[in-house]
Design a protein around this nucleic acid. Sequence first.
DNA 1: GTCGTTGCAAAGCGTTTGCAGCCTA
DNA 2: TAGGCTGCAAACGCTTTGCAACGAC
Lengths: 124, 124
Amino acid sequence: MVSRRTDQQTAIRAFIQEVDRPVRVDEIMQGAGESVPGIGSATVYRAVKAGLQAGWLVEVHLPGDRRTAYEMAGKDHHHHFECNNCGKVYDVEGCPGHLSKLIPSGFVMEDHELVLYGRCNVCV
Amino acid sequence: MVSRRTDQQTAIRAFIQEVDRPVRVDEIMQGAGESVPGIGSATVYRAVKAGLQAGWLVEVHLPGDRRTAYEMAGKDHHHHFECNNCGKVYDVEGCPGHLSKLIPSGFVMEDHELVLYGRCNVCV
DNA sequence: GTCGTTGCAAAGCGTTTGCAGCCTA
DNA sequence: TAGGCTGCAAACGCTTTGCAACGAC
């Protein structure tokens, strides 16, 4: 199975790369749809799944939102900030660290996920 | 609209209180179903929604799981630990703190959510 | 021309809602 | 008895999948 280059795939990847923050499927459809009108949701879902497997995309799960978001992989370790007003999600660099001291003895920590909430610089 | 006490409501609340960790609707149905066989999912969904509004329940969102979990409200500030092996979720006391220093200037932090992953003491 | 890709529509999955009958107060 | 509560099934929103037409190579 050799993959082929199509306008849809190109537009989807270009859009996600360009916005540089986690985006959901509906946003991708809208964004990539400006380059390729009429793009179908199944195509976007298939593209992000392929991106995840290929390793250039990662999932971002936002508590309270049933819809999965996606962003480019390969960034430095970071977390996310969701604006309580406009709903946009931003990357935040840095990490509190030393989290393994929080867990009970006998448990082993392998990873963590942190989401901050508040108001972004536009909505303050 | 005066609420009435029913076996289902009692069983649902008793189960959630008893397990003392976040549980999903399917788990509640199974657990409460031992006291009240044949309990319907709609009843559980309506009960947890009522619990949220009444304030004795809080939602717990687990990244990567589309299903919302619930636990008793009123606990001290805490976070959650999900076992990568058995999938169970445990409360972890404590908090890294000083998170507002992570966000860009111009942003205002109002809240945060942290989930740790790894192996619980049973699955190590 | 081959066969991976696309868009549509149908199917899945968790959750919500309409409704007739049940049961608490 | 009144009207809130329950279970069933249909409806919903997001995501996945089947399928015939399309188009990259």
